[in-house]
Write a protein that binds this DNA or RNA. Sequence first.
DNA 1: TTGCACCTTGACAATTTTGTCAAACATAAA
DNA 2: TTTATGTTTGACAAAATTGTCAAGGTGCAA
Lengths: 200, 200
Amino acid sequence: MSKEDVKKDDTYKLILETAKSLFFAEGKFNATTQEIADAAGVNRTLINYYFRSRNALIDLVFKEAMAEEEKQQKIIVMSSLPLREKLEKFIDFSFQTAKEYPYMEMYMVTHMNQQNIHEFKTREQVELLPFVFENIQAEMDKGNIEPMEPIQFLLNFISLVSFPISMRLLLQKGLNISDAEFERILDDRKNVILKTLFKN
Amino acid sequence: MSKEDVKKDDTYKLILETAKSLFFAEGKFNATTQEIADAAGVNRTLINYYFRSRNALIDLVFKEAMAEEEKQQKIIVMSSLPLREKLEKFIDFSFQTAKEYPYMEMYMVTHMNQQNIHEFKTREQVELLPFVFENIQAEMDKGNIEPMEPIQFLLNFISLVSFPISMRLLLQKGLNISDAEFERILDDRKNVILKTLFKN
DNA sequence: TTGCACCTTGACAATTTTGTCAAACATAAA
DNA sequence: TTTATGTTTGACAAAATTGTCAAGGTGCAA
């Protein structure tokens, strides 16, 4: 099926995307090479042919996801929009990728935990942070947001955006919420988050 | 070492606690029976002797963790304290268990995802929810918290409490925060969360 | 058509992980 | 001391997972 959707010589890409889908969309963090191959509709040894080993494929998936996420986020942070609009854009972007890959963040954490990964943020990313903090501080000075350490505001923001998506399954079952209902709640989240973080 | 700390016939308990520690404290979600046995300082086959199979052990760890968490939470929710104080207690409790088992929530989610787990909340838990919602609604009517759907307020609260703990590794490395600094930030979180959710 | 480069496959081997079992061991009661 | 019960161990078998390889296939360029 999906094998027919792409050119034959795109097997490499097909395997890569299928792996991403298994890990990030379905949350099958321990998918075996056989399972990945089956999901992609290809022979298992093709994974070795194109990626050398299972680990090499895993690492590639991880690095690509990281890079993609960073690239997008940087564009938003570096824009000259006011803070509130930056955050709005960030929410939109997060919810959009989260719809496709709800388990991506959790995969990152568990994967980093098992490997020993050090610098996964570029120097650029880290150097951008003080700028963001200044941005937040300025809004506090203007009285638009509750005064607190900028890092705490940032934690608040990331938490409010990411947690309901990452932990969706836990929340849905724990609070007994249907799929449709949870979708609706998520759609309202953007406004709720802004209302929670900004004074009127 | 740790084997000497307990009575010999507590091997059952020792293995169970070691498994919990590996999964929830160290985040080694794929620990093999050999790794668990080594960590506990016992022979691997004792896992089969006491728990029949690896899966049986895993399931037991999962169920016990769930049960323990629910038990504690129920005590808090059922208390007749005002909402703000309930939430304060909840924060204290969460941070306390999270210090010991930072990866517990993530383990729950990934584990539920791989198995097909349905009712993991007792009927009691679910039946308690409307009561909590009323509680929240009353505070909104009193003007103590920003008006929104009670479920959204609850999501906000859980997110603010749990996310920084669950995703600690990702946040620390992503934001370039030292261990000591992150500890300090977490210690301030309780007040920050209350300030964020409650109007003055 | 032939040759070449690349892709795909199934068979096989190596490794890892789990589970079983009989024998050895320890301890407390008779 | 002997016996009985429950615990621990190492050896072995089975299953699952990964990686290698030679052989076969495909399409395109000469």
